[in-house]
């Protein structure tokens, strides 16, 4: 299903939750709404679901396949919604939870008992929880609960899947496993999916496209590569990972450079052709990359550099060493004017 959001502005009292949002969701894609808490990403998702409505002083429209859905009851929107805290029905078994959407259908459309059973069993297999049908939610782990919640949403064969921080309440390992699984599942079913997250790593890993939101405004829309390597502005580069800020001052202008830790090079020779000189303060060897904290000798600011273990060994760096810093590439934005 094609979803369009047009000039959407939403107020909560005097607070502008969404500010002129324009968005076009391509059928079949997994779109991530990425932003810090309070940015409005969840509000946008809930408005698409119909859990928040357009009030009189709000502006804009939401279209499903070019049809305005403002007056469509939320039960008729063909939406599967997954909540951060699962929102499973506590007093129902896993089976009853997944079957709920089918069993509340009006008599004419409701599948027979055996059809429901076949369908639920198929979904249980899909979420790798066959054999758990008669357990209650409180007997499941967080990751299992979220998979049940997903199966419950999929049971009514929605045309869109909306996920509100689905892995936010899970621990790191389960979260990584589940998002890989979700990505595979989503591309297998081919269902249009919108995922809300504040975790940039999650967005970069699962999304086909990322919408970066801040303070109710869209900062950038693009593929993970685009937003990571060609961020449009300072907010986006800051939000999508660590970044070092360098200033270059002329007599009449100031130039800002944003450089990611892995885009910096440590130079041992005392040549003057470096953008700054710094002293190594801390080296973190655990992890796939070596992370080094340095202190700029000129202004005392902290500089972060990441390099491969291989390169680190070659250069034999130690805490206290004074080294030169050079960028492998430069990036600047309009407000800094230049390059």
């Amino acid at each position: 299903m094609n979803i369009k959001v047009k000039n959407l502005t939403k107020y909560f009292g005097n607070f502008t939750a969404l500010d002129n949002i324009n968005l076009d969701v391509v059928p079949g894609e997994l779109l991530a709404l990425l932003g810090p808490s309070g940015s409005g990403k969840t509000t946008l998702l809930r408005m698409i679901a119909g859990l928040e409505v357009l009030d009189d002083n709000d502006i804009g429209e939401i279209l499903f396949n070019n049809e305005n859905i403002a007056d469509k009851p939320i039960g008729d929107r063909d939406i599967g919604f997954v909540f951060q805290h699962y929102a499973l029905f506590k007093h129902m078994t896993v089976f009853e939870n997944i079957a709920f959407g089918l069993s509340v259908k009006p008599k004419k459309e409701r599948p027979s008992k055996s059809e429901i059973e076949t369908k639920v069993n198929k979904l249980l297999k899909l979420i790798q929880l066959d054999g758990f049908a008669h357990r209650f939610p409180w007997q499941l782990s967080g990751g299992q609960r979220q998979r049940v919640a997903l199966a419950r949403a999929l049971a009514v064969e929605p045309k869109v899947l909306l996920l509100d921080e689905p892995f936010g309440a899970l621990d790191a390992k389960v979260r990584a496993d589940l998002r890989k699984w979700l990505k595979e599942l989503q591309s297998e079913i081919g269902i249009t999916t919108i995922l809300v997250t504040h975790d940039q790593e999650e967005a970069l890993e699962v999304a086909d496209r990322i919408v970066v939101i801040s303070k109710g405004k869209i900062e950038q829309i693009g593929t993970p590569e685009e937003v990571f390597h060609n961020p449009k502005n300072e907010f986006v580069i800051n939000f999508l990972g660590n970044v070092n800020l360098f200033h270059e001052r002329d007599e009449n202008s100031e130039q800002k450079y944003h450089i990611r830790p892995h885009e910096l090079e440590i130079v041992l020779s005392s040549s003057s052709d470096v953008i700054s000189k710094a002293q190594i303060k801390y080296i973190q060897l655990a992890g796939s990359q070596v992370k080094i904290d340095l202190q700029d000798l000129e202004n005392g600011k902290t500089i972060l550099v990441e390099l491969s273990h291989h390169e680190f060994k070659q250069k034999s760096l130690n805490i206290g060493d004074i080294v030169g810093i050079n960028p492998r590439q430069l990036r600047t934005f309009k407000d800094g004017a230049g390059i």
């Binding site: 939320i74 599967g80 909540f83 929102a87 709920f100 959407g101 509340v104 919640a149 949403a153």
Partner: peptide, 12 residues
């Protein structure tokens, strides 16, 4: 949340 989930699943 549970009520919203039920409504989204099509319950009256």
């Amino acid at each position: 949340d549970e009520e919203q989930a039920a409504l989204l699943l099509g319950a009256s």
